[in-house]
């Protein structure tokens, strides 16, 4: 499974893994939206720690989930981005809509 969910105290955490491109984003979008509809979390955390590759399709995926969650007053956080993926997310202006956090350095990736 490219995503695992943890739901606790109004917070839905999605642990994403593998490569996120336009092809894989279609499936991720579907399962994320199913989970969001089911739990209606007040906070959605998208954890990119185990994501080995992403392109701008992942930015679109995050933007789209932001719109879903924001529609009912929920918030979104994106965790464990590499310096590059953080830069990509910032190009879209997402930092003003969601909390974006980089990987703590000393970790396995750069």
């Amino acid at each position: 499974m490219p995503v695992q969910f943890i739901y606790d105290d109004q917070t839905l955490t999605a642990l994403l893994s593998g490569e996120i491109d336009h092809h894989s984003a279609a499936f991720l979008r579907q399962i994320l939206d199913e989970s969001i509809a089911k739990f209606r979390p007040s906070k959605l955390i998208l954890d990119f720690d185990a994501v080995s590759f992403m392109d701008s399709s992942a930015v679109g995926l995050v933007m789209g989930r932001y719109r879903c969650v924001d529609a009912y007053g929920g918030a979104i956080e994106v965790l464990n981005l590499t310096p590059k993926t953080l830069r990509m997310m910032r190009l879209s202006g997402l930092q003003s809509l969601a909390v974006l956090r980089g990987k703590v350095s000393g970790g396995k990736n750069e």
Partner: peptide, 22 residues
């Protein structure tokens, strides 16, 4: 131009900006 897209909701319009920056 960054953020320009003709493909609606799920695209961020960042493809060319990413190519240019990388």
């Amino acid at each position: 131009e960054p953020l320009f897209t003709t493909a609606g909701e799920e695209r961020s319009g960042l493809g060319f900006a990413v190519m240019e920056s990388f």
